[in-house]
Design a protein around this nucleic acid. Structure first.
Length: 425
RNA sequence: GGAGGAAUGGCCGAGCGGUUUAAGGCGGCGGUCUUGAAAACCGUUGUACUGAAAGGUACCGGGGGUUCGAAUCCCUCUUCCUCUGCCA
């Protein structure tokens, strides 16, 4: 969330920056509540001071004296006023929280202006599109049903759940290991977190309260299925103060991810692209404000490395204001080339949140030079979405007969397998 | 799932409703002494809000209550430990 104080003192700037997201947001109610908070705080603290100062006096008075009774009644009056202010203060804070938690992060100044994803800016292209002397197939034509069983997935669970089988199942597992090993070599510590998180964690990283309809909730509990490993891993440091010497913290985590995909009904109905459950390896960094921009760019490179190892053609786009996620201040998407769809598709999203998540989750660090505590910066990115990587391999490495060449770097992870036999009839 | 016990500062550990301004110890930091170190001694020590500052307020697992006044009494929730049941 944004700093209430900053919002009140820079209302014009904040409104201007939020416009980059294509949204008009009214901040006057926030300012009103913030002022009331200060007034109440003053009333409460003045009364408390009076009460505290009377402590010794009361202790030393004869409990049966008239003076004691008189003083007691006097203090009772003050105490009641104090409690009233405190109650009202709690209400004001709650309303204030409610408002501020729904306000998205400010886009960084460098973020391109735009109205939709059409306005994202391509900043890099790596590799070349593979050429085929035949018409490349979709991954579902290459995989259905012996490698990817869409129908039985729907039967046992529901639509947008798929059963991975045989070499495709092995490839999911192999990719997870390849990704975790690669990131491990780059200095990321491996984390295997719980797949269920509580409401506080979901709020800390910004999935709640605004996007509850996107999350799967376990009935009868306050637990949510993780929509991304970002949630458990970033919240590892919630409510903690990290010594600066330990920064940057670099974590890599595999989890299954669960998303309701509310609002995207009718899109990507076929194939593995959009699923309610998918595997993902996520990279998370906690940094100081000074280094977050650099670490953001380095994290992008770490994610790109996987595609480079797999020799998959991709491009990097910087998201324009309108396409930016709620918590992000700046975001790069990596889009892999999918010949079967004749299109680039997002396979990784690498965001810098600055102190937006840190303020929500209370992730701080102790500065060595100044000996004070400050909010940390958080960064994360997919490294990569595993299911979509399988899609990319199937479509980019297909041969005319429908068999699929296993990328060399993946072979040691698949028992030396070189070719996935064709099941195309 | 059942039965007990516990929760106090970075850590350990005291704490009869009002000199608690949370004792004491350890650790950390600074200093004295020393060629250097150790030891000893002295000082210091968290977080948030508020304030220009001095300072003030709050925080003894969370929330509520009793009281002029709660770390202390009451209710409730959570977490951890021990024993026990079931279990990959």
């Amino acid at each position: 969330m944004l700093d209430v104080r900053f919002v009140c003192e820079n209302m014009d700037l904040v409104e201007e920056r939020l416009k980059l997201r294509g949204k008009q947001i009214d901040l006057t109610e926030i300012k009103k509540l913030a002022n009331e908070r200060l007034e109440l705080l003053y009333t409460y603290e003045t009364n408390q001071q009076l009460l505290n100062k009377s402590q010794n006096e009361m202790a030393n008075l004869d409990k049966k004296s008239e003076e004691f009774a008189k003083k007691r009644d006097e203090l009772k009056e003050i105490s009641e006023q104090s409690k009233k202010a405190k109650t009202r203060l709690a209400e004001v804070l709650e309303s204030l929280d409610k408002l501020i938690l729904y306000i998205p992060n400010l886009p960084q100044e460098s973020v391109p202006v735009g109205a939709s994803e059409e306005d994202n800016v391509i900043i890099k292209t790596w590799g070349v599109k593979p050429s085929f002397n035949f018409t490349p197939k979709n991954h579902w034509d290459l995989g259905d049903t012996d490698y990817m069983d869409f129908e039985r997935g729907s039967k046992i669970t529901g639509t947008k759940f798929t059963v991975m089988k045989s070499y495709a199942a092995k490839m999911e597992r192999a990719l997870i290991n390849l990704m975790l090993d690669t990131h491990g070599e780059a200095g990321y510590t491996e984390i295997f977190p719980p797949f269920l998180v509580n409401r506080t964690s979901m709020t800390g990283t910004g999935q709640l309260p605004k996007f509850e309809e996107d999350a799967f909730k376990i009935e009868g509990t306050d637990y949510f299925l993780v929509p991304t490993a970002e949630v458990p891993v970033t919240n590892l440091f919630a409510d903690e103060i990290i010594p600066e010497s330990e920064l940057p913290i670099k974590y890599a985590a595999y989890t299954a991810c669960f998303r309701k995909e509310a609002g995207s009904a009718g899109r990507d109905t076929r194939g593995l692209i959009r699923q309610h459950q998918f595997n993902k390896v996520e990279l998370v960094k906690i940094t100081t404000p000074e280094t977050s921009d650099l670490e953001h760019k380095k994290l992008l490179e770490d994610a790109e490395r996987i595609l480079q190892k797999l020799n998959l053609h991709y491009r990097v786009v910087e998201l324009c204001g309108a396409d930016l996620g709620f918590s992000a201040s700046k975001c790069f998407d990596i889009e892999v080339w999918l010949p079967g769809q004749d299109n680039y598709r997002e396979i990784s999203s690498v965001s810098n949140f600055l102190d937006f998540q840190a303020r929500r989750a209370k992730i701080r660090y102790k500065s060595e030079s100044e000996k004070k505590n400050s909010l940390a910066h958080t960064i994360n990115g997919s490294g990569l979405a595993v299911g979509r990587t399988v899609v990319a391999i199937f479509e980019n490495y297909q041969q005319e007969d429908g068999s699929i060449i296993v990328p060399e770097v993946l072979r040691p992870y698949m028992g030396g397998l070189e070719i996935i036999p064709s099941i195309v009839k």
